[in-house]
Simulated scan of single mutants.
Amino acid sequence: MGKRRKNNLQLTFNILPIDEKATRRAVEEYLETVRQYRQIGFVRREAAVTQAYVYREHQTTNAISKQTETIAVYNVDKEAELKEKDRLLSLAMERLSSVQREVIQRSYLDNEGEFDYISCGEMGVSDSTFRRIKKEAVSLLAMQLRLAKWDEPKSNMVL
């Protein structure tokens, strides 16, 4: 066994005021969005035209509803956003070590929904080591994807 290398970026995480729960939640939501996009692609919205046979009294708000325009803009913007998220995640995953990449892939991006203890056995690592690697990888992804949530500074002043 060789000496375990620490990434310089990992050493600074301990001194930064990061809210770990909120950061982990943000990264998991990001990874789940990308996983769904990779698995099923983008589902476009379509305009629904339903005729009503009841007379509706309209108010004079002068507001115009542009349903088709709104849906078209949403479809274009959302698909571009999902493609960009996928691209950024691919770039961030390339910067992780091979073990960290495998842990993130197995835990979040594979569609099989495998339990962590099964992944531990297949990778040949202990449960605590797996959790440590996963925590480090999520922290690195949070910084690379700019998803880190910062703790609110606590004021020491008493009013």
Rank of each mutant, 00 (worst) to 15 (best):
G124F: 04
L11P: 01
I15F: 08
S65H: 12
M143I: 01
C120W: 04
R132V: 08
K134E: 06
E84G: 01
I40C: 03
L91Y: 06
A26Q: 06
R45F: 05
R25T: 09
M157D: 07
N8M: 07
D86G: 02
A26M: 05
Y117N: 13
V158W: 03
L96A: 05
H58P: 11
E122R: 15
L16F: 06
R35G: 01
Y30S: 14
E102L: 12
V76C: 02
I40K: 15
L147V: 14
L109R: 06
F42L: 06
T70G: 13
R95V: 02
S119F: 02
A72G: 08
R56V: 14
S139E: 08
T68Y: 14
A63Q: 11
T61V: 11
V103S: 06
R131A: 12
C120L: 08
I15E: 06
E20G: 02
D19R: 09
R24P: 00
R106Y: 01
R132F: 00
I118V: 15
V103E: 05
I40E: 15
A137N: 03
L31W: 04
V158N: 08
E46I: 14
L9R: 09
Y37G: 10
S97F: 04
K134P: 02
N8F: 07
E84F: 04
L140T: 06
Y74C: 00
Q100F: 02
K83D: 05
N14Y: 10
A142F: 03
